[in-house]
Amino acid sequence: MSRYTPPEQSKAGQVFDIAVVVVAIFVALWLPLKLGLAGAAKSIDALDAKTWEALGQNATMASIWEKLGYTPETAHDIIQNRFHYVIDWPTLIIMAAVLIGYFVFLFRASDREYRDVINEKFDDK
């Protein structure tokens, strides 16, 4: 098998490739922040009666909250801010499909490239 000789990349090409990667990184990390997609689905289950008992805190817990500088009013938003776990099947299926598709593509494309590497490395001596 003949040895593959990669083309030399020009300076401008190198700079361009770096720029592509940087932009991609920023888009991937920054866009979810900007669109508000990042962060968990939490919401406050408001209670009318703002006492330690109503918030489900026993005497020991209440004393610790107070030691930390909270009153039932200020602690309310922390304690009642709850997750609501609902399994949204369509999203779950999309996520699973995306993940599996991604890994399958990775392993198959890698294997094709890997065969070239092995052939050149071991048959070319």
Binding site: R3, Y4, V20, A24, A28, L31, Y102, F105, E113, K121
Partner: peptide, 28 residues
């Protein structure tokens, strides 16, 4: 949704690598 966005990014950049960038890489 964050997970899907991340994986989409990795997928796109993988395409970029596989079909374009890999040509500059020595093989063996």
């Amino acid at each position: 949704s964050q997970l899907i966005a991340m994986v989409a990014f990795y997928f796109l950049i993988s395409l970029w690598f596989h079909f374009y960038r890999y040509k500059f890489v020595r093989r063996g």
